Each structure stands twice: as C-alpha cells, then as structure tokens.
Simulated scan of single mutants.
Amino acid sequence: MALHILKLSVGTESLEDKIDWSKHYLKRLKAAGHPPQLFHTTRMVPKRIDEILDGGSIYWVIKGQVQCRQAIVDIEPFTDGHGIKRCHLVLDNKIIATQWQPKRAFQGWRYLKPEDAPADLGADAAAIPTELKAELSDLGLL
C-alpha cells in the first residue's frame, strides 16, 4: 500500500504560483541541457522507501492548506559537496490539485497515510481562483 509524504511549500503563495514556478524551473533545466525533471531535495532520507515508491505522492501544504500533490517517481540518496547526506525526491512533473485540508506549520516532512490524504479535485475545480477556493474551503464546500 502506498505511503505519502506531507511537506510545506515554503514561499509559495498559491497553487497557481506552485504550477508557474514548476513550469519556469522545467524551462530553465531544458535550456541548460538537463533533463526536465522536478525533484525536491531533503536532508532526511525516508526509511520507508519501498512503501513510498509503491504509488506514493508528496502532498504540498500551501498557506496552511494541503492544496496539491505530485507523484514520487524515485528517491535518490546522495552526499553533497560538504559531506552531508541528502536525498532527491524525484517528482512527476504534473501537479494535481486536491481538496483543501488545513495543516499547521511543521518542520521537515511527515509521512501521510493514504486514508488521511485529501482526494484529488477534477480539472474544473482546479481552475477555480484561489480566493474563491479559500472562501469555499472556509464554508466547508471544498
């Protein structure tokens, strides 16, 4: 059974901001001759790699709400130039909008059980402006 990761998207203002940043980063990678592949670097290597790679995603918390996810396609531990062990969570380039779920701030990342993960939203719901999503979420309608 898949296991997910929950992570704050620090500095991100909205889901649209997250999508725009990702598109811009992919263009920069391609222009530099690198494979256009998104990843997140973390210091802690997950111990439950097999469960995560069995269909897990990283769920992004933006402005206090889980708002989207990306499938984790690989986990690549490495040692950086300063001798510190780190890890790339290699992500699918597609960002999938989810139902909003409130989450308080935390450091690092957390495991997220499948039964606790918010459901994906359809393409129509993903097109709703951020301000309207916030209001609908406050009313318990999204």
Rank of each mutant, 00 (worst) to 15 (best):
E76G: 00
K113W: 06
E76D: 06
T12A: 06
D92C: 08
K133T: 00
H4D: 01
T130S: 09
L29C: 07
A127F: 05
D74K: 12
I95C: 01
L8P: 11
A119P: 00
Y25D: 11
D80M: 08
D20L: 10
D20P: 02
A125D: 15
I95E: 01
I52Q: 01
W60K: 04
G108L: 00
E16M: 00
V61A: 00
L136T: 12
A119V: 09
T41R: 03
R86H: 11
Q67N: 09
K23G: 04
I62Y: 07
Q99P: 00
C68S: 10
L89T: 03
R28F: 01
L142V: 08
H88N: 15
R28H: 02
D138E: 11
A32C: 05
S14K: 03
L89Y: 03
P46D: 06
A117Y: 13
D74M: 12
L91C: 10
D54Y: 02
A125M: 15
A2C: 11
Q70N: 07
K94D: 12
T79F: 03
K27L: 06
H88I: 03
D17T: 12
Q101I: 06
D20H: 13
R86S: 11
E13R: 14
L139P: 00
L38D: 00
K103S: 01
A31Y: 03
K23S: 08
F106C: 05
L6P: 04
G140W: 14
M1G: 06
A123T: 01
R104W: 08
E51T: 12
Q70L: 05
A127Q: 01
M44H: 04
D20V: 04
M44A: 01
A123F: 02
Y59K: 00
G33D: 11
W60D: 07
G56D: 09
F78Q: 03
Y25F: 13
D74Q: 12
L8Q: 13
G83N: 08
G56I: 04
T41L: 04
W109L: 07
P114H: 09
H82A: 15
I95S: 04
F39C: 06
A125H: 15
T98N: 11
C68D: 00
D92F: 07
W109F: 15
K133M: 06
W21P: 01
R28T: 04
L3Q: 04
D116N: 15
F39Y: 10
L15R: 09
L132S: 12
L26P: 02
A117F: 15
I62D: 03
I19F: 06
S22G: 12
V61W: 03
G56F: 05
